[in-house]
Design a protein around this nucleic acid. Sequence first.
DNA 1: TTTATACATGTCAATATTTACATGTATAAA
DNA 2: TTTATACATGTAAATATTGACATGTATAAA
Lengths: 191, 191
Amino acid sequence: MRTLKYAILGLINRHDMTGYDITKEFSQGLSNFWNAKHSQIYPELKKLTDEGLVSFEIVIAGDVLEKKLYSITEKGQHELKKWLLRDDPIEPTPKDKFRLRMYFSDEISHAQQVALLHQQLEKRLVKHSFLEEHFKTYIKRPNAGSAAFGDYIVLEGALLRESAYIQWIRKVLGYLETERATARQALKTEP
Amino acid sequence: MRTLKYAILGLINRHDMTGYDITKEFSQGLSNFWNAKHSQIYPELKKLTDEGLVSFEIVIAGDVLEKKLYSITEKGQHELKKWLLRDDPIEPTPKDKFRLRMYFSDEISHAQQVALLHQQLEKRLVKHSFLEEHFKTYIKRPNAGSAAFGDYIVLEGALLRESAYIQWIRKVLGYLETERATARQALKTEP
DNA sequence: TTTATACATGTCAATATTTACATGTATAAA
DNA sequence: TTTATACATGTAAATATTGACATGTATAAA
């Protein structure tokens, strides 16, 4: 598998980067579909170097600070392109703790179910509006041949994904409300 | 974290189960938001037993086959309920190899981009229709106090998620087509 | 009665990932 | 000039997960 390998290769292929730069990328744009900590990135960079897929040049920042600026090799570019064209089988559905909770939520009270859903909804709405703000900064859609096109489409994909999540939560909240209302009605007409 | 712990606890809480039964669950309904192999499940069951959260009884199937039928303990039920009520911070966006590929897709040709998207679309449509078939088997929405309600809502959530994915792929395909059309037009009018 | 498939339970090695530990520089603001 | 924050690079231990190895029974169909 080693997907991290290709994520890093793809980033360095865009332009030369340090491990620190790569780490930052994973906490920004890339975070919409991949993530990694620096403790995973530095060892992977070493491995890629050993495999001849990237190479680095030491650059001095300030007076003494040594940065390792990585570039992709021809071999690395070749492997990246090969990976990009692979038609992998669909991945298992991603894990989701909140859905797991909702799956077992018949164990908690109606009020608690509603509270959980509202808390989650709030967080999802915040996330959605962050994505939307970012998306709005694009004056126009970038050309498909440009790296910015990748940025653009995955951002839009993230927006659609969050919207679907929000839609789902609201639907479930609707179910819970309807049921409560029906129960109240039953109490009234048949006391 | 140990989310698997709660997934298993939740399952056994619904009714007594063997490790084999749990494994099957993970390849069915649960697969819409969690998964685990039996090589992870059996050791976890042992751990839960040691912690006094579950206990088992040996049942003989056929002539000699020993099954371990697990039940949840009071302590286990208590821990499960506590976990269900936890308001965890939102999780990092799930990893997605296909989105990663699309992110770097400016490295491949227009035709290759389109091919990748079509292959993915095809698989997503198949998955969507499976989910839809399953969803249709519900005559009516189960009551929110029942375990079936959990099954129902996560299935609907999975449907919404797949729909959003499909919508995204179609949107990107649309972008690529438009751009190609515009390029053709430019060639025609200004040869 | 053979044979295929589902049932049933485990371990082990390798890989992937997280969290904590560890250290130091550069730069801008107070 | 102190101080906070970002820059910069690593390692180690613990946990999570996968894939391969390992073994055997039950059941229904051919």
